[in-house]
Design a protein around this nucleic acid. Structure first.
Lengths: 232, 232
DNA sequence: GTCTATAGTCAGATAGAC
DNA sequence: GTCTATCTGACTATAGAC
């Protein structure tokens, strides 16, 4: 704690290396040997500082998730004080939720793209204890934004809001995880357009339109298949 | 090949068990021992029938991905013949892409939800060779649908279409992967609404709205942050 | 706090009998 | 095709010197 700060502490070196390797290869496929080698520390240091590999995974997440969710809640609070007695614009609400996550991919000091990939991955990986420690901080964010969206979109039924927020989270998770998947769909030289500057406004307006989509009274599943018949 | 079909073949038993275990625990965390134990076959059978663990992973995917992409292309072809010299409706186009993927989660004979989770996971996991074998079949689907969307939305710039198809794929990937993540955002008893019947029409109309979102001439990033300043 | 050395476990792959 | 038995290597975790 009262470290000279001359050289990056062993603990931090381990966290940085683990973050990078976890993001690249997944949790199970990353060995403590690879982590300690990359961090240029001794193999035993991980178990000394963190106790176990599982605890190290938790620590990697705890370092980044807390600030991100705090940024989301702060942005939401700023909006709510800026729009007292008025309706918070939908695009700003979406941006408040989405931007702190995407911002991680820019700002080096926040951990950079390394962690962004890792976070996205953790949403689809059954990382056990990771989910539990993430869930604790996330439910607050989720609830606050749900209320805020409900106020901005008062005519939207709760069930629809639930699904659409779900879609929003999904889209975000994918964008965070799937940087290299762009080539799957791209296959052309469009990769030049992949700057992250371009993604935020496009993502926000896509989500905004989806949030404002008309609500179908009855599900139109069957209407969707006059040709192929009801195959769902 | 000329198997009596009395008892499920060792090969199929391995594929089924591997699919299930990979979906639950990931590729690296699933051992051949666990797979062969679940399949009630001998440990050596995997290497006899598939050659290696990596080849087994490929085989698990190949068995399911091929029919799914074929269903997508067939649905697209039906639409294009039903709407010759007319504009294919956007919601039908989206459904043709999205539904074969979501349908996997219903139909038991197609592999069921097991594989759906696995496919979603593979999009965020650097499964190496898996990506390569998936990519080959997917580029055709991607290109065909890109052209179809461009015809239905002729006024949409190619760059925007690229991003919005990217968003569509992302949303789909997340929904396929993230069944249990619903509780993260739900936290209430809304889980009762999680039937997959409900998701397709909602997903289609969400995506359709996003696809039709107005195109901003200049990126409105800075406009989004009059309160917090330009922090992106 | 950091190291070496190693215990104990489990992995993927293979040889060879049947 | 299927089995037993086993090889070889890599892993996490720990004990104990410094």
């Amino acid at each position: 704690m009262v470290r000279p700060a001359m050289k990056r502490s062993t603990k931090q070196a381990i966290l940085d290396a683990a973050e990078e390797l976890f993001a690249d290869y997944g949790f199970a496929a990353t060995s403590l040997r690879a982590i300690t080698a990359a961090a240029q520390v001794n193999l035993a240091a991980v178990n000394y500082h963190f106790g176990s590999k599982e605890a190290l995974i938790d620590a990697v997440f705890a370092r980044r998730v807390e600030p991100m969710n705090r940024a989301r809640l702060e942005a939401l609070h700023e909006l709510q004080t800026a729009f007292v007695d008025a309706i918070v614009p939908l695009d700003r609400l979406i941006a408040a939720f989405v931007e702190p996550a995407l911002a991680l991919s820019h700002d080096r000091t926040l951990g950079g793209q390394r962690f962004v990939r890792l976070l996205g991955r953790s949403l689809t990986e059954p990382a056990g204890a990771v989910h539990d420690s993430l869930r604790g901080r996330y439910v607050e964010v989720s609830e606050q934004f749900k209320s805020a969206f409900a106020r901005t979109l008062p005519e939207l039924p709760a069930v629809e809001l639930y699904w659409r927020m779900h879609f929003m989270v999904g889209l975000l998770a994918y964008l965070m995880a799937g940087v290299d998947i762009m080539r799957l769909i791209a296959s052309s030289r469009m990769s030049a357009h992949s700057e992250y500057d371009a993604v935020l406004p496009r993502l926000v307006s896509f989500i905004e339109a989806g949030m404002r989509a008309p609500v179908n009274a009855d599900d139109t599943v069957s209407d969707l298949h006059p040709v192929s018949g009801a195959q769902l």
